[in-house]
């Protein structure tokens, strides 16, 4: 029904976030919590470009994503890479990434204020289209279409290019990547570029529905993590399914249990998966344990 459609659309955006996150995790093996905030900054930049320079939504979204990519690359080179080199455990880096998230969140609050910014494709609010009795709003159409497009492009990239193959290989076998002639550092940079790009697109898409505010950074990275874990860390297909599942579960929860339990549904889903099937739907890598 309508609820499932709502869930699938928002889930596709979650899926993008999860895919980017999973991609990065599979290569670097630590959780980068600032991921969500960098994505939101991409959305903010898109917002500024649209408002101040009247850029078209899609162009602004891409431009914002490029800025996000820049910040993502910087964070990797300036903060995370040195920390890994100093022998920091994944937990230490997780905590540090949280510090980065807080800093970026508050800088965003200083620049764009704490109020929720509106982002839209058009100047007027338009009614949704009626398709077989289901309503799909223009925003939903945009989200679904772009998400699908991004996933297709990513699929092609991973299958056809050298970088793509190296990324897929690095999780299983680091030696293989050397055969392809690429250094680990280059691959890490590549996944940061791709992952951050996808996440910024996703954040800008979600902003159509819920606006942009600094706290969305945390919200989105949590969704990304849940999607990635349900799907199985490191698996692109998994993150896709995980994101969709999360979106649908949330909306079903809202409809049948009430809007006030939305977060509880999301986290219970996470807990159930971690307890019952920690490797996720498409087992590829188990979560690295501290012990």
């Amino acid at each position: 029904m309508q609820i499932i459609l709502n869930g699938l659309i928002v889930g596709s955006a979650y899926a993008l976030m999860g895919i980017g996150f999973s991609l990065i995790y599979s290569t670097v093996r630590y959780f980068n919590l600032a991921y969500g905030m960098v994505a939101v900054i991409g959305a903010y930049v898109a917002y500024t470009l649209m408002n101040s320079w009247s850029l078209n939504y899609v162009i602004a979204m891409l431009a914002g994503a490029l800025v996000a990519v820049l910040i993502g690359m910087l964070s990797s080179s300036i903060l995370f890479k040195p920390m890994v080199r100093r022998g920091g455990s994944s937990l230490v880096i997780l905590v540090a990434s949280f510090g980065l998230l807080i800093i970026l969140q508050n800088i965003s609050a200083l620049i764009w204020q704490n109020t929720t910014r509106a982002l839209s494709i058009s100047d007027r609010i338009l009614p949704g289209y009626n398709l077989f009795g289901l309503i799909i709003t223009p925003n939903q159409l945009m989200i679904g279409a772009v998400a699908l497009l991004m996933m297709l492009i990513l699929e092609l990239f991973l299958k056809k290019t050298r970088y793509g193959m190296a990324i897929r290989a690095i999780g299983d076998n680091q030696e293989l990547t050397k055969v392809l002639g690429l250094k680990t550092e280059q691959i890490i940079l590549a996944v940061y570029v791709i992952g951050t790009f996808i996440s910024a697109i996703s954040a800008t898409l979600i902003a159509l529905e819920i606006g942009i505010r600094p706290t969305h950074g945390v919200t989105l990275v949590i969704k990304a993590i849940i999607a990635a874990i349900i799907g199985g860390l490191g698996s692109i297909r998994g993150a896709l399914l995980g994101g969709l599942l999360l979106g649908v579960a949330e909306n079903l929860g809202i409809y049948f249990l009430g809007g006030q339990w939305q977060d509880t549904v999301a986290f219970t889903l996470l807990a159930v998966f971690l307890l019952v099937r920690p490797e996720g739907l498409f087992a590829k890598k188990r979560l690295v344990s501290v012990n």
């Binding site: 609820i3 709502n6 869930g7 928002v10 929720t116 709003t137 529905e209 819920i210 606006g211 706290t215 919200t219 909306n251 809202i254 409809y255 809007g259 006030q260 939305q262 977060d263």
Partner: peptide, 10 residues
Amino acid sequence: QPNTADFKTI
């Protein structure tokens, strides 16, 4: 919830 803004399902 106060931290969300997606009212569509409701």
